[in-house]
Design a binder for these strands. Structure first.
Lengths: 256, 256
DNA sequence: ACCTGAACACCGTTCAAGT
DNA sequence: ACCTGAACACCGTTCAAGT
């Protein structure tokens, strides 16, 4: 869902690397290639990057490792893309490619919920995908742009003002990206280490001074381990009913 | 507010660097120093780090730069702290130090809102503070722990179950950390560059194919630039009323 | 047009050695 | 107890040079 992460502004506002008004130019209209295919194109690089991501995670996704995987030198990558930021943008868009659109005849609430579930599904499909989206910073890709469109359209159709729709869009996007980043943070530590650490963490909380931290101690179990699906559902429910009552409030105000 | 970021689990669950069950040990009971003060202690390092952060931002906050600022060699830092992760944890706690507690006689909604505003205030007080909190990964510090306690206590007092309180705590924390990360992302680019880029971004959106992206185009202005205070208020309002109706729903269900 | 060699300017971290 | 020298194993990126 959402699609316009911090990333969004990222691209919009001159990336802090000081070099990118240029990045907002129209997408490369893939130049007609009269001759044989070149050894390598952007698409192949992005797909190799996605594979590398699944193998080694976000930390291991370096330009050098990617080059190695492709059997070329790191410097060669810079012929096909401006920098790592662009790679991450392309990768983010690639990750969002399998997103399915919700049925437009459903209520806006259900459409948003489905969009949220879809976005999470797509993010869970690749290792550290949420971190890629969190750091990608560019809505330039067609898939992300399409998602943004669906999300914003749904909010506008529901009756939100431009501003509210934009704000809500950010919120929904951020929630999901953040949520999945968290829930997958330890997806790749060996199971027994994770269990031991979780046990350890609970005990650590419970050993805190009870007069100072009674609530933390009482909630230690729920803080340390939780059913991700349930927790996600809770979050979506909160946002859903929050948006609902916002809409009701605005409408009531307008009818006075 | 919130206080238990992804970070939270981070520490809890064995950090992915594979070396940290140990990190959950009780905090170093500062050994009684019989002699003169050593040249350097942890507190001074953390304060220097905070200063360095304000000067050069999160990117520039490296162990090597920090050492240079302190007039020592980078290797020396490892005498006072395990690694950079620990530095970030300590720094996160230092950032949260000025948090004020909301008046307990207020409604839980108002207490949460005040807690949210306070957290944002504290994060805005230092450059890239939100990024530090997002990446700190450790609730071990006393300030963060105190905040967590207040937040969870407020939620429990409001009548939320343990699970709901824990989930809501994560949500509120994540929202604020993410929000401030976003709103400050371009705080340090020269004003005229930011303005130019924003202008550029709007035009880029507006030049998209109107049949494919009508909503994105319609909302271009609101997506690219927005009043942060207003947007934050919107988010808090959504969460507030979402939590309210969750609570009402649970209570109604329990009374049947 | 596409790729490489070789370098530049960095990182975090370790560890034997100094005092 | 505390700090340094020197190295290790990396990063992203540039650019002249090759083909």
């Amino acid at each position: 869902m959402l699609v316009l992460p911090s990333a969004f502004v990222n691209l919009c506002i001159f990336t802090w690397r000081e070099k990118s008004l240029m990045k907002l130019q129209a997408p490369k209209h893939s130049a007609p290639r009269p001759q044989a295919e070149p050894a390598l194109n952007q698409k192949q690089i992005v797909q190799a990057a996605l594979q590398l991501l699944d193998e080694v995670g976000f930390e291991g996704l370096t330009m050098r490792n990617l080059a190695k995987k492709l059997g070329i030198k790191a410097a060669s990558l810079y012929w096909h893309m401006r920098d790592k930021e662009e790679l991450l943008s392309l990768l983010a868009d690639e990750i969002c490619e399998p997103m399915r659109e919700p049925d437009r005849t459903l209520s806006w609430q259900d459409q948003l919920e489905i969009l949220g579930n879809e976005f999470r599904r797509v993010l869970l499909a690749h290792r550290d995908a949420a971190r890629v989206l969190a750091s990608s910073g560019a809505p330039s890709g067609p898939n992300i742009l399409r998602l943004t469109e669906i999300l914003l359209r749904t909010l506008l159709d529901a009756g939100f003002s431009s501003k509210d729709a934009a704000y809500a869009g950010f919120m929904l996007n951020d929630f999901i990206v953040m949520f999945v980043s968290e829930e997958t943070q330890f997806a790749h530590v060996p199971a027994e280490s994770a269990a031991a650490a979780s046990y350890n963490a609970k005990n650590w909380f419970k050993a805190l001074p009870p007069d100072q931290y009674p609530s933390v101690i009482a909630l230690a179990d729920d803080l340390v381990e939780s059913d991700s699906n349930e927790r996600f559902k809770f979050g979506i429910m909160i946002l859903r009913s929050g948006l609902e009552s916002c809409l009701a409030h605005r409408k009531a105000r307008n009818q006075i």
